[in-house]
Amino acid sequence: MTDPILQIAGLNAYYKDFQALYSLEMHLMQGEVLAIIGANGAGKTTLMRAISGLMANGADQVRYRGQPIGALRADQVAMLGIAVVPEGRQLFPSLSVEENLLIGGRMGRKGPWSLNSVFDLFPILKECRAVPSTSLSGGQQQMVAIGRALMSNPDLILFDEISLGLAPVIIKSIYDALPVIVSEGMSAMIVEQDISKALSVSDRAYCLQEGRVSLESTSADVSRAAISQAYFGIA
């Protein structure tokens, strides 16, 4: 296999006096889909913030294609080709659906994704392209959030809790779209509380518990018992 696209080494993260991550070690290979599972408060969202640059870290604690990016600002990280589908969608309320997508594509990175290909992936968005993003349903908003991230033609895409608060049928349709997205050679990291969904689409998984990696395994081989041990710290 090739070198990892993302390498996390000795990552510590703090909120004032509270330490959320403890010398985290993990890696993500080129083209791989990685699942990060764990209970609430295990540090999953903190990890996302640390990678995307919303939280400052030591430069060497996060490496992207060998380059230290841990100390970069979020906009600099984004420029390198790392996109985020944030928890809770977080669309821009004063922008229309189309404008939300366009702002995702403003960096002008080359690649397969454009307004048209996003509309092909989620046809419903084309119909409501001119409406304010806040008037959409939760599932449609999630599609916009995914489309917005794709518009930057990232090499690595981070999905943060994309099934949270959505109806099962919507979750299914969004997860059905995932293979299409990652088939383009994109690497992906999926943070998810829905363990079976996360394992079904990923190659490999890490489980976090209280800011530490409690399990690392290929997604196909991991046993239920190992997960509950890693998830709750009980056998």
């Binding site: 995307s52 640059g53 919303l54 600002r73 979020a74 906009d75 984004a78 420029m79 996109a83 985020v84 944030p86 977080q90 821009f92 309320p93 004063s94 922008l95 404008e99 366009l102 702002i103 995702g104 403003r106 960096m107 917005r148 930057s152």
Partner: peptide, 17 residues
């Protein structure tokens, strides 16, 4: 668009580069 996006949500706007 960038002005409005930053005004709406500074963090997420940063994620858009």
């Amino acid at each position: 668009r960038a002005f409005r996006a930053v005004s709406d949500n500074q963090d997420i706007a940063q994620l858009m580069g």
